[in-house]
Computed example of a mutant assay.
Amino acid sequence: MRVCIDKYKFICTILLFIAASTGFTARLAFAAEAQKIFYVRPVPENDDPYLQQGSDGIKQAAQMYQMQATTLASQADRAGRQKQLENAIRLGANIIVMIGYEFRELLDTVPRTAPHVRFVMLEQCISNPPPNLLCISFRESEASYLAGMEAALVSVSGKIGVIGAVKTPLKQKPVDAFIAGARSVRPDADLNHIVWIEGSQPFNDTARAEALAKSMLADGVDMIYAAAGSSNNGVFKALAGNSKARAIGSYVNQCPRTAGKVIDNMQVHGDTAISLAVAAILAGSTATRIEYGLKEGAVSLTGISTDAAYSDCDILRQRPVLQKLREASQAIIKGKLKVD
C-alpha cells in the first residue's frame, strides 16, 4: 500500500522521518487504522483556496496514517457551525479540524462536551483552551519579513503599501515584520501606506480593498502587500489598470490568476500544519498550543519554495533577488536572523 501520494511526497518524507525517529511508526499503522478525522468548514463550499487546505490536510493525514477523512461544510452562522461540529462528534470523529475565526466563539463550549475527541484549530485560540483542544499558530512573521525584503528590492519608486484585513495584534505582527524586512534592505523606503479594511467582512470586501489600492496607486505606490484574504481580489482588480505596480499575495499562490500582477506570495500551508498536528497527536502529545514556521514548512515564499518552478510567479526572473531571499530564509531557519 502506498502511504504517500505523489502530491505530498516531500511532506510525507519529513513526517515519516519524524515518526521513525520517535519510534512510533509501527504503532501508528495499527492504532490509527480505524480512526476518523473530520474537517468542518466555517461556510458552505466556495472557491476559497485557503479553506480548501483543510480538506487537503485531512486527506494527507488519512493517506499517511490509514484514517478515514470527511469534510463537512457549515451554514454561514454560529448555529450551522455548531451543528456540523456536533454531527462530526456523533459520527465518531477522533480528530476534528477547524479553520476560520468564525469558530472562536465555540472553542470554549463544544470541545468540553466531547472530551474523548481531539479538536485542532488553526490560527485562533482562547485564553484557557480545554485539554482536548490543540491551537495551531503560524510564524507568519518569518515569511512576511522575507516578503518585505522582496518588496523593497523590487520596488522602483520606493513607495510600498500594505492592505490588511483587520487590525489585531495577531495580524499586526506580520505587518511589522514585513516593514522590518523592507527596511533591512532599503532603509529609505516609504512605508507610510499601511491600511486595514475592517468592517463586517474584512476578509471578503473586494470593493473596499479595490478603493484602498487605487488610492495607494494614485500616490505613487508600486508594490502592495495584499494580506486581506479574499479581499485581495479587489487589490488585484485595481492593479489591472496600472502598468507599473505589482503585488505580493498572501496565504496561497495567487500568481496564476492575476496576469503577472502578483510577483510572489507569503504562503501559509494549513495542510502541512494539519499533518504535523495529527502526527503529534498520534504520538501522544497533550499540547494545547503548537507553532509552526519556515523550519517546519508551514509558511513560505512561493518564489523560493520547492515547487517554485510551477508557480507562474514573475519573481523567478529575478535571480539575484531570489538568492538574497534564500540566504535570509536559511538564516531565519538556523536562528541566525531573529524575526519577532
Score class of each variant (00 low, 15 high):
S275Y: 03
I194G: 14
A207W: 08
V156N: 15
A273H: 01
L212S: 15
A279P: 05
K244T: 11
L239P: 09
L217N: 06
V156R: 15
D205N: 15
P174C: 05
S200E: 13
F236W: 03
R208A: 15
K261Y: 03
W196M: 04
I197F: 13
T168I: 02
V262N: 02
K244H: 14
A177Q: 02
G164D: 13
I179M: 14
W196F: 05
S250P: 05
S231F: 08
K167I: 03
L170D: 07
T258A: 01
A211L: 10
H193Q: 09
G241F: 10
V166D: 05
C255N: 02
S215G: 06
G161T: 05
D264K: 09
T168S: 07
A165P: 06
K214W: 08
L170W: 01
P202D: 10
A180C: 08
V268D: 00
G164C: 11
K237N: 02
K159R: 15
A209T: 08
N253S: 04
D188M: 02
A211P: 07
A180Y: 07
T272E: 02
A182L: 06
L239K: 10
R186S: 13
I263F: 05
S184T: 03
G241P: 13
V175A: 14
R186H: 07
I179Q: 14
T168N: 04
S231I: 10
N233P: 05
P174Q: 01
A177F: 05
L239W: 13
T272D: 06
I179K: 15
A226K: 00
I197Q: 13
T206Y: 04
H193Y: 04
K159H: 15
E198P: 07
D222M: 08
S243K: 15
G241H: 14
